[in-house]
Design a protein around this nucleic acid. Structure first.
Lengths: 109, 109
DNA sequence: GCCACTACTCAGCGCTACTATGTACTGGTA
DNA sequence: TACCAGTACATAGTAGCGCTGAGTAGTGGC
């Protein structure tokens, strides 16, 4: 992946995953596959699992273990109330940044 | 500053500064002041100077030392050809990310 | 028996922004 | 004269996040 993208994903990848989880519980492997289908082709598996561990530790998601037909049991993550609040703050922060950048891109300064 | 913003600035702050520098040579103190006027009220001075050192080392800017009426001499940075190319790539990367996020925000998935 | 696919884990690294502090010059003021 | 605010730059150390690379484990097909 481009170095620029790697740096830019810091902070935003978490928001992307939280947004995906909204009303849509999912497990790690599934999330990785979805990200890749969205064009984030080079997101490493390890990155996603580490992110999931982190948001679980931070209490933004609830986790449920479910047996899989193929392979090891899945850890299904769903957004909880704290996660929703965190996601809202994420959108606020993102909105601010996106607005600034859009201004910079179109008019310059 | 919020932790979210801190993380989200990674990668984008450099682009913001490069964009500001386009056709508008400036020095560190001035850039810091401008960023604060744009709402990035908590950007630390040290952060900007470190960033300027980095982009100079990476050959994205040319530097000229000019005496100041008040205080130490200024280091005036201006975007060079490599910097412009880098900025273009930044906009491409940003554009991709912004599009994905805008989709996520409006429709959800 | 081997390989591909599913599914999760973890140690170590690189990069960027932040914290905190220091240097140095000018001008006002008490 | 001493002090302080404002201008201007520099830097060592820290935290956080995504990446690399490797490993473990279960299922099914050839």
């Amino acid at each position: 992946m481009g170095k620029q993208m790697t740096e830019m994903l810091k902070g935003t990848l978490e928001g992307i995953v939280l947004a995906f989880l909204t009303g849509n519980p999912a497990y790690g492997y599934e999330i990785t596959a979805w990200l890749r289908s969205q064009g984030f082709t080079d997101i490493a598996e390890g990155t996603v699992y580490a992110l999931l561990v982190r948001i679980e530790k931070n209490g933004l998601v609830d986790v449920e273990k479910r047996p899989s037909e193929k392979g090891p049991p899945r850890k299904v993550y769903s957004l909880n109330a704290d996660g929703e609040k965190h996601l809202e703050e994420f959108w606020t922060t993102w909105g601010f940044l996106a607005e600034r950048l859009e201004n910079l891109r179109t008019e310059g300064k």
